[in-house]
């Protein structure tokens, strides 16, 4: 169990003027004060947290919610700063600001494991999890496809959910598709900090904490890109590799990368360099074998784990 800590540093949101951030950052508050503030805003939330055994296990340190979170998002939000993993050594991994979201009443149809956990489709993703474990149990998995709309996001999200199901592992889902991000929209939240911006900032301030969103399940964290005002930057290969390495050290057992399509850019080649293996997705009646072959050729010699066929 990690030691509860509270830091004076929050992930900077300076580059995001759209987000009103109280300046200067939240004053250092004691645990008591934090809880009190939380109680003020959302009456029984604390009690819920207390009652939730999972949350007890993860032992979050609560911080007072920001104005933005309570007013802009319809769902209750809790900010927390935590260090993931067992080690107490502050240098062992980056610090994380975790923003917790309640599950909305409407779920995207791509969230198969949440919408229909008993279905055969969900089972297929669980089978995929097991097959991957057989195929060398890769820890950083880049999910990609040859062309657009072939189910990369669908597969990545559900694989991440399956990997973290029942708290079996800590999973981070990273949006590596900076040009056409879809994770935030899919989960229905606006990330407190855009992943692209954080990536940029960590080149200068490597020890800055990362701001992630806990998406409906305590074992799944998401590093999403904000869709609005996105300058569509290129993927910064070295920074991305450092980030992935740091996040791995930070205690995530699995990192799933939702990447852009292979053909048409070199982004996947960069992402694949940081990954243990590449998982291809194909969408029945949509994907062509020719494109798939060319994509595999383009990624060589990256390790190809296999392919999933969706929507048969």
């Amino acid at each position: 169990m990690s030691e509860r800590r509270r830091r004076d540093r929050r992930p900077s949101t300076k580059d995001e003027p759209a987000v009103p951030v109280p300046t200067p950052g939240p004053p250092p508050v004691s645990e008591e004060a934090a809880r009190g503030a939380a109680d003020d805003l959302r009456g029984d939330l604390r009690g819920d947290l207390k009652r939730d055994p999972l949350l007890d296990r993860t032992a979050l340190t609560m911080v007072p919610p920001t104005q933005k979170m309570t007013l802009q998002d319809a769902q209750p939000v809790i900010d927390s700063l935590e260090r993931i993993g067992e080690s107490d050594d502050p240098e062992s991994g980056p610090e994380m600001w975790v923003e917790r979201h309640r599950m909305p009443s409407r779920l995207d149809r791509r969230l198969v494991l949440l919408r229909e956990p008993d279905s055969w489709r969900s089972a297929c993703f669980r089978v995929l999890r097991h097959r991957l474990a057989e195929h060398g149990d890769p820890r950083v998995i880049a999910v990609t496809s040859a062309e657009r709309g072939e189910g990369k996001t669908t597969c990545a999200v559900n694989l991440a959910l399956a990997l973290g199901e029942c708290g079996r592992a800590r999973v981070l889902l990273v949006e590596a598709n900076l040009r056409a991000p879809s994770l935030a929209a899919l989960f229905g939240f606006t990330p407190p900090a855009c992943f692209a911006v954080q990536l940029e900032r960590h080149r200068r301030v490597p020890l800055d904490p990362w701001s992630v969103v806990e998406a409906y399940s305590p074992s799944l964290h998401v590093l999403a890109v904000r869709a609005e005002g996105n300058p569509r930057p290129l993927l910064d290969g070295p920074a991305f590799a450092c980030t992935i390495a740091a996040l791995r050290r930070g205690g995530y057992e699995y990192i799933v990368l939702d990447t852009p399509p292979v053909l048409g850019s070199a982004d996947v080649n960069l992402a694949a360099d940081s990954a243990d293996g590449v998982l291809f997705t194909t969408w029945a009646r949509r994907s062509s074998t020719r494109a798939l072959r060319r994509a595999v050729e383009q990624l060589a010699p990256a390790k190809i784990l296999g392919v999933t066929l969706l929507d048969v």
């Binding site: 489709r121 089978v127 991957l132 195929h135 994907s287 595999v296 296999g306 066929l309």
Partner: peptide, 25 residues
């Protein structure tokens, strides 16, 4: 038509193992 319709189409390619087939919703 070289589109993928079924697992057979991927198996015939023999470029990589087919790990999962997810049915239609």
């Amino acid at each position: 038509d070289d589109r993928i319709y079924d697992r057979v189409d991927i198996e015939r390619l023999e470029v990589m193992p087919l790990l999962a087939v997810v049915p239609r919703a």
